[in-house]
């Protein structure tokens, strides 16, 4: 499974070395979205049945099902709360960011 991550080798662009055309490598992520959140989804792994509903409905694709249970990529989750609302087992709660 391929989940993009923060790109580490972004060139230092300046007026002198901008790409000659408008092409750019796909999948470059220069900054995180974590700072957008005021609340964060917390998964109760004990109660997660691995139904994939939260994974499917996340607009940002930040929920992975690698271990058969939901896990959140907090680098890119914006805290919208769709996952908590859609979970049929109420095992995701939104908790305030400190």
């Amino acid at each position: 499974m391929m989940r993009p991550e923060l790109t580490s080798d972004i060139p230092e662009w300046n007026a002198g070395n901008l790409p000659p055309d408008t092409c750019c490598r796909a999948g470059i992520l220069a900054d995180l979205n974590a700072g957008w959140r005021t609340v964060r989804p917390v998964v109760d792994a004990e109660r997660c049945k691995g139904c994939y509903k939260c994974y499917l409905h996340c607009p940002d694709g930040t929920i992975g099902m690698d271990s058969g249970k939901a896990s959140v990529d907090y680098n890119f989750c914006k805290g919208c709360g769709i996952c908590a609302r859609i979970c049929p087992f109420d095992c995701i709660t939104m908790e305030a960011e400190e």
Binding site: P59, D60, F76
Partner: peptide
């Protein structure tokens, strides 16, 4: 992934 859409878009 990592797009800047509003939360819940």
């Amino acid at each position: 992934y990592g797009h800047k859409a509003c939360a819940g878009c």
